[in-house]
Design a protein around this nucleic acid. Structure first.
Lengths: 232, 232
DNA sequence: TCAAAAGTGTTAATCCTACACCCATGC
DNA sequence: GCATGGGTGTAGGATTAACACTTTTGA
């Protein structure tokens, strides 16, 4: 059993990939990229970067996202390390992958188009190069698990939203649908929402105005830390 | 943004550490090691190994455990990668950590003593070198979460055990105590146990014989895959 | 006969699920 | 006035939590 580290042991490259889930009010999307050089030129992949010597992995992922989206403050959680020996044809590359969430607004959508990245509905992502399919699956499972135990939404919904929006989000993330009344009762029961003095403006397609809510930040934080049994 | 990998990017060493939980019928223990060379000579650490070029990380962890314990078939689950830039004074070493569980029998206890490794009650582990305290905390949280959603015990208890044993295990893992009747009803309700035609032999310290059970392997597997809401 | 741990049921409160109709608005 | 989605309550069943006494054995 090896006890000390030799020069020859510094042999691995580090990469990081990010699975970013973005909600647009209708569906959950995932940020994908296109590989622009060999190997796998032209293939879809997850946004990824090589971690340079003396750079932090997490910081590398954040700054990749800054460059791609223009957005700066990302909450990223480590998913796992993907370290199978021959996962990368270039050599031994260990991928430390993260996942995160974002509210999809027009700014985000536009900037991405300019740079060749794109948002794809999370259940229509094409096959990805390397082992990125596996990373994506891992992230989807993680998101599901998270949704069941901790509040989600702060990072996926706009500041003000309707209960319908929130329900749609949960339905997308968990892949099933809920009874409207039960859902509302349960969410209201958590006291995580604050009812605003506003309603949505009725739009052209015949709608009754809907009550707007925002999150109660304090309670949201507490629930994020402690978890709560929001199992559907 | 870097797009292809250069030689200089193969700069990191890979290490792996394992957090092994072992149950001895009374308490949950963790396998610890002693660092026998600088840096941190003499310090307690988690069992760890350097991953050589062309060796798989998981396989490295398994064979480390084989060497330490003599036991071969380990279920190890990846915890996370620990990759902070300066976590190791030797250089850039990324640690891909695993956790696993084992039934502590006499064989295991004896063999370890011979090799300087030892089992320490999980809430009495001394401060560890590197960032191994952090890894250990991470593992304890993971174990808790797992216990709440999936059956545990196959890998921590002997083939035949009493409901008391199982309850003690859950109490150790979750750090709280349960009502005996409610616990039994819930466990029996899962139908994961098979009642044997045996009872424990009363021992010297005045005990009534207790019913022995074993796991129903099929149901156990199904529950391991699907999860179940065993939230206490 | 006593000490020590095994084993056993009930009740009240809570939570979950299923279910159907009226309302406010723009067109 | 009609089409669209917003909004509301209840009842039955299931699950949980709290609670104390009797039994079997070795010493």
């Amino acid at each position: 059993m090896k006890v000390s580290i030799e020069q020859a042991d510094y042999h691995a490259a580090l990469a990081t990939s990010v699975v970013i889930f973005g909600f647009d009010g209708e569906s959950l999307n995932v940020l994908t990229a296109t590989k622009e050089n060999p190997p796998f030129e032209g293939a879809s992949i997850l946004p990824s970067a090589i971690v340079s010597p003396h750079r932090d992995v997490h910081e590398t992922a954040t700054s990749l996202l800054k460059k791609v989206t223009g957005v700066d403050h990302w909450y990223l959680e480590q998913l796992n390390a993907f370290a199978k020996l021959y996962r990368n044809p270039d050599g031994r590359v260990v991928n430390i992958a993260f996942y995160g969430t974002v509210k999809l607004d027009d700014k985000l959508l536009t900037q991405l188009k300019r740079k060749g990245y794109s948002w794809v509905p999370s259940n229509e992502v094409p096959p990805l190069a390397y082992d990125h399919d596996e990373i994506l699956e891992f992230a989807k499972e993680r998101l599901k698990r998270r949704v069941k135990r901790r509040p989600i939404g702060f990072s996926l919904l706009p500041k003000e939203f309707t209960l319908k929006d929130l329900q749609t989000l949960y339905e997308c993330a968990l892949g099933k649908s809920f009874d409207k009344r039960n859902f509302r009762r349960k969410i209201i029961g958590t006291e995580i929402l604050i009812e605003l003095d506003k309603k949505t403006k009725p739009t052209s397609d015949h709608k009754k105005p809907a009550q707007l809510y925002k999150f109660d930040e304090d309670k949201y934080q507490k629930m994020t830390l402690k978890g709560y049994p929001f199992v559907f």
